[in-house]
């Protein structure tokens, strides 16, 4: 790829309480590309995301965003450019949906109230929450909460968005609406790194699938190849399990 990657992860390592969760993970993400990270629980997928924006600083390795190394200094500026969507939504309980989306625009980007409101409305409309501006998080369904949190990330004009199991806390009938929003985003050219077992997203919108196990990347490749004839026996075993046993996904 001629373009320099928007995100470059190089040999990232992380140890928790004596256990090495990430044993040197490297990959690149090009502008507009979306990759999905799959793998058994406890293989460091979520930790990997947290190591990227230093919510959980890595013990080793280098992460660069658009050519700039991500370090503790200026971390707030860097984080403002990286959207993060959590499994548990983590909307601000005390704020209406509109204010959830406005808060960091005002506080971090210094946008005017008017500008922040305009952007918040636009992004909430984009995720189908035009009628929920004044609702509080506790008044929303899980799927609506997750869409609101995606709007909150989008309003910051991020260079990429990290999704940490965005549908795992949702009832099965609510995952569809969130996955649809994510597919739309990927098709609109948003750069995304998604930890999820949502195979419908992987097949329809991911440019590449990364299979992780035991703190390392076992195999990565385009979804067609990964699903039809993966190189590693372990990959095909895992894919068979999650596609056949829907409960697991």
């Amino acid at each position: 790829m001629s373009d320099t990657p928007i995100l470059s992860v190089c040999d990232v390592r992380k140890t928790y309480g004596g256990v090495e969760v990430l044993k040197g993970v490297s990959f690149d993400l090009a502008r507009g590309e979306s990759k999905i990270v799959i793998g058994p629980s406890g293989t460091g997928k979520s930790t990997l995301l947290r190591c990227i924006n230093l919510l959980s600083p890595p013990d080793g390795g280098i992460v660069t965003l658009d050519g700039v190394r991500i370090e503790e200094k200026n971390i707030n500026q860097i984080r403002a450019q990286i959207g993060f969507v959590f499994q548990e939504f983590n909307l601000f309980t005390h704020l209406r949906v509109l204010d959830n989306v406005r808060l960091a625009q005002r506080n971090v980007l210094g946008r005017s109230r008017q500008e922040a409101t305009r952007r918040a409305q636009k992004e909430l409309e984009r995720v189908g929450l035009a009628d929920k501006f004044d609702a509080y998080p506790a008044e929303l369904s899980g799927g609506q909460k997750q869409r609101a949190s995606i709007a909150r990330a989008l309003a910051m004009d991020p260079k990429l968005i990290l999704f940490d199991e965005p549908t795992s806390a949702l009832d099965p009938e609510l995952t569809g609406e969130v996955v649809q929003v994510m597919k739309d985003l990927a098709n609109a050219g948003m750069t995304m790194l998604v930890v999820s077992h949502e195979m419908s997203f992987a097949k329809a919108a991911a440019d590449e699938v990364i299979f992780m196990e035991g703190g390392v990347i076992v195999e990565q490749g385009p979804p067609d190849r990964m699903f039809s004839h993966p190189e590693q026996a372990r990959t095909s075993q895992f894919l068979q399990m999650i596609t056949h046993d829907h409960q697991y996904a």
């Binding site: 919510l55 707030n76 909307l91």
Partner: peptide
């Protein structure tokens, strides 16, 4: 107050104090 909300605020680039 939920830790997750603090994490979400930090992930948006808000300072500790903010």
């Amino acid at each position: 107050v939920a830790d997750g909300e603090v994490m979400a605020a930090r992930a948006l680039g808000m300072s500790r104090l903010a």
